[in-house]
Design a protein around this nucleic acid. Structure first.
Lengths: 208, 208
DNA sequence: GAAAAAAGTTGAACCGGTTCAGTTTTGCAG
DNA sequence: CTGCAAAACTGAACCGGTTCAACTTTTTTC
């Protein structure tokens, strides 16, 4: 009894996301009209809204995929942090940043960020913030791990520093998406500088 | 030759902002339709768009007023930082936060933030980021001042730490505006904790 | 001070995301 | 199978921000 209805639903869901992804890459998010997405997905406009609450919800599906992959990769860094504190934190940051444009363009990131700020009471926003929270927790986890490994001073409040570091990397990422001309390398360099300053103060004086 | 045209223009500009402010406070930003704002300002919809490029531009006028006042107050803190590094930085943060809801509601802040992220190529966004930049520079200035006064260690990169602190206070402020139930005191407490952790590491071991 | 140019005003129309009343399809009970 | 209730689909209409061609008012020119 595989459920015809279920199968149809899953199929259409996939078709819509597929159509949207294609059109987003092709002409950008703004330029992709719901009507066009529905047409490519062979579905009516009304049906589209049966599957997604807002146009922006299409982004959520993509952002979720993106962040989950990055969290997975990040696990590796936390489990076995390379080098000293500076190296390790930069490695995690680079993991996040390097992956950021695989599924999403700057415009798509901007739209997702803007929506999650503008409409905090939507499932979209809640989920988006949940993902942010998980990333933040991963940075905290790394710092705690580094402290256990003796690469960060004993007295350091790793939660506070981890959260601050996340807010920093998040803020710089926003600047990056907002500045169309800014290259990924500039973003990384900017963040590495922050990490350098930080680890110079809270890292143990050790092998550089 | 006072210029009738000039006078009319200024008068209408004021009338529109006035009308918008009233309606925003009354029913919120979203709920205030352009048509209604225009009507209260005794102007046509078309004329509204002669004075403002987007609905959001109304917010820019208000945000600018808000931030400029806060920058002024901040100057006082930077000129004569009270107490130790922790006290001083918290004083500046509190200056920013305490003033934040004088002219704007959380909804209005959210809309302004979202717009500046979503449409980075508009004058709105450029101006908004400029204001952010000035705030960031003020935090850097305070840190540099504290270092000169011997309240921060000599080796500390005050620019990096100042910018990181700004990104932190900015990020927490976003969380605050996005969480309708969050009180100002919670926001301040959250930021003070970050500052505590920071100054514990980069401050000089001195009179507490 | 008449006429032309420039600047400003107007509201109906546009646009695209979202809604909803009516229709079709599916699953299930008898 | 048949009939019926529930679920899903549909596209025309809605809504509100934005545009624009026609119109008015002010300023400038001679």
């Amino acid at each position: 009894m595989a459920g015809l209805r279920e199968r149809q639903k899953a199929k259409r869901h996939r078709a819509i996301i597929q159509a949207a992804s294609t059109l987003f890459k092709q002409n950008g998010y703004e330029a992709a009209r719901i009507e066009a997405i529905a047409e490519v997905a062979e579905v009516s406009v009304g049906t589209f809204y049966n599957y997604f609450e807002h146009k922006a919800d299409l982004l959520l599906a993509i952002v979720t995929m993106e962040v989950e992959e990055v969290l997975n990769q990040g696990e590796g860094v936390v489990a076995a942090p390379p080098g000293d504190a500076y190296e390790a934190i930069c490695a995690l940051v680079a993991t996040y940043y390097d992956h950021s444009l695989v599924y999403l363009t700057k415009e798509m990131w901007r739209t997702a960020m803007a929506f999650s700020i503008q409409s905090p009471d939507t499932p979209f926003s809640r989920r988006y913030r949940e993902l942010d929270h998980q990333l933040s927790e991963q940075v905290v986890a790394l710092m705690t791990r580094l402290q256990q490994g003796g690469q960060l001073r004993a007295g350091v409040d790793t939660r506070a520093f981890g959260e601050l570091t996340f807010l920093g990397l998040n803020g710089l990422f926003t600047t990056y998406t907002v500045t169309e001309g800014m290259a990924l390398e500039e973003l990384k360099a900017g963040m590495f500088r922050q990490v350098r300053a930080l680890t110079a103060q809270i890292g143990t004086p050790d092998a550089a």
